[in-house]
Structure formats: C-alpha cells, structure tokens
C-alpha cells in the first residue's frame, strides 16, 4: 500500500505484514494470517510481481535498444518531422544552388584553361619552328648530304656562299656547313688564303647537310650553270647524296637583339 504515493506520509497499516486485504483479523493474532490463505496468495503475488518487473526489464531493454539503434527520427512527432523536412529541403536548395555556381566556375576555369593550353601549344610550335629556322634547335628530316671537293683550292668564299644560297633558294630549312649551323648571321670570309665560316677555318672537302625536299635541293644544286657546274669548272666536284633522314645536331646560340625590339602591330 501507498507504494506509489508521493512523499506525504503513507497510510500506516496496523502492522508491517505483507497482506492487508483481510484487514479485520482476529485480534489475538494480528501478525498471522489464516494459514490456508497465506501461501497461495503469497505465491500468486510473488509471481505477479515477478511477471510485472520482468515485463518492465524487458521493456527497458527493448526501449533502450530501439532508442539507441533506430535513427532518432522515428521517435519524433509530426510537427518536428515537418520542421526537419523543411530544413532539409532548404538545405538541399542551398546546396543545389552552390552546385550550379560551382559548375559555372568550373566551366569558366576549364574554358580559360583550354585557351591557355591552346596558346601555350601554339607558342611551343612557334618556338620550335623558329628554333629550327634560326638554328637553336637540333633538326631532323629528309634532305641531302653535299660533298664538295676542291683539290686545287680554287673555290672562293663566294662560291661556298652560293651553295648555301642555292640550298636556301630551294627551300632548305636547316643547313649545316662543315662544323657550323648556318643561320641568318652566317658569314663566309677569306683569311690568309683559307676560307672561314663564322670564324671557323674550313678545310676541304666540305660537307654540307641540308634538310628540305631532297629532290628540289638536288635539282637546285645541279642546275646547269649552277654551283655544281661552277665547282667542276674550278677543278673540283660536288656530289649530292639524297637521304631520307638527315639529322643536324649542331646548334647555335641566339644572341639577344641589342638595338631592335618588337614593334607594336
């Protein structure tokens, strides 16, 4: 009795025994109950209490597990769920907007990246072409090997320059004359009876490599009245050897222009 009452003093029974239903007992034995009623009642009460507390323990375990395991949403009420749903929707909208913005940024950056890459590729191609034409890069391709013999040493610097000019005129893109890569500033000079190219004294026979259309180069050199004829007239010989692959590894260093600078278009 009074087991679930609050802190006010519970009703005090006549004594501390466990059963109170037979409240009116014989006065002589207040602590003892009728023997026939006591055991069954006690067992039944104990069984009931056991069942109830077992059910309580079971419920506690189940509830604790359900609470810790299932997501917390399942215990919420409709209003709360609606609020959470609204929040999530707003958040989703915000994130979708961010995705759109970021995708635009990505596209913009990719475009500019593509442009940059294209510009760089173009610049690299230009640099390669200029390097080959100016002699600052090694070059390979079809061409000719020209061997000029001059046993009587009658060829002059002008004759050798004619060979180079003829090759250029025939479209040679890279020329190596003796040990020197021929470029725009290449010069043939005569010093003390010897011919020098860019200061390097040449000794015969002269070997020239040129990259270009080999047939055209051959034809240009052997044109009647051309350099081959002039060489032979001087007692020497000029032999053109057409090759599928001519590799010129000699390079020049590029001097920085001292006076000239790029003019605006």
């Amino acid at each position: 009795m009074a087991d679930d009452d609050d802190s006010t003093a519970p009703v005090q029974p006549d004594d501390g025994d466990k059963t109170a239903s037979p409240a009116k007992l014989p006065a002589k034995l207040p602590a003892k109950l009728p023997a026939k009623e006591r055991p069954t009642a006690r067992y039944r009460a104990a069984a009931l209490i056991g069942v109830l507390t077992a059910a309580l323990g079971f419920a506690i375990a189940v509830q604790v597990r359900a609470n810790s395991q299932s997501d917390s949403l399942s215990n919420l009420r409709e209003d709360d769920l609606i609020g959470i749903l609204d929040n999530q929707n707003a958040r989703g909208d915000r994130l979708r907007q961010q995705i759109t913005e970021l995708e635009q940024t990505l596209r913009r950056l990719q475009d500019s990246g593509d442009r940059n890459a294209a510009a760089r590729q173009q610049a690299e191609q230009d640099a390669a072409a200029l390097g080959i034409l100016l002699g600052t890069l090694p070059a390979t391709g079809p061409g000719v090997k020209v061997t000029i013999t001059d046993p009587d040493r009658k060829l002059t610097a002008e004759d050798l320059l004619d060979v180079v000019e003829e090759l250029r005129g025939a479209g040679a893109e890279a020329i190596q004359f003796g040990p020197v890569r021929v470029s725009t500033s290449t010069s043939f000079t005569t010093s003390g009876g010897a011919i020098a190219i860019d200061g390097n004294v040449l000794t015969g026979p002269y070997t020239v490599f040129a990259i270009g259309d080999s047939k055209t180069l051959d034809t240009a050199l052997n044109i009647p009245g051309g350099v081959a004829a002039a060489t032979r007239a001087a007692g020497g010989d000029l032999v053109v050897d057409e090759r599928d692959v001519v590799t010129i590894t000699v390079i020049r260093s590029l001097s920085t222009p001292k006076y000239a600078s790029p003019a605006p278009h």
């Binding site: 009074a2 087991d3 009703v11 029974p13 501390g16 059963t19 239903s21 009642a41 006690r42 209490i49």
Partner: peptide
C-alpha cells in the same frame, strides 16, 4: 517502510 502490499503494488 515495512508497508509493502503486493496487491497495491500490482
């Protein structure tokens, strides 16, 4: 408290 009653409890 010594006033437990099974019936009341149940």
């Amino acid at each position: 408290d010594g006033i437990f009653d099974a019936k009341v409890f149940v």
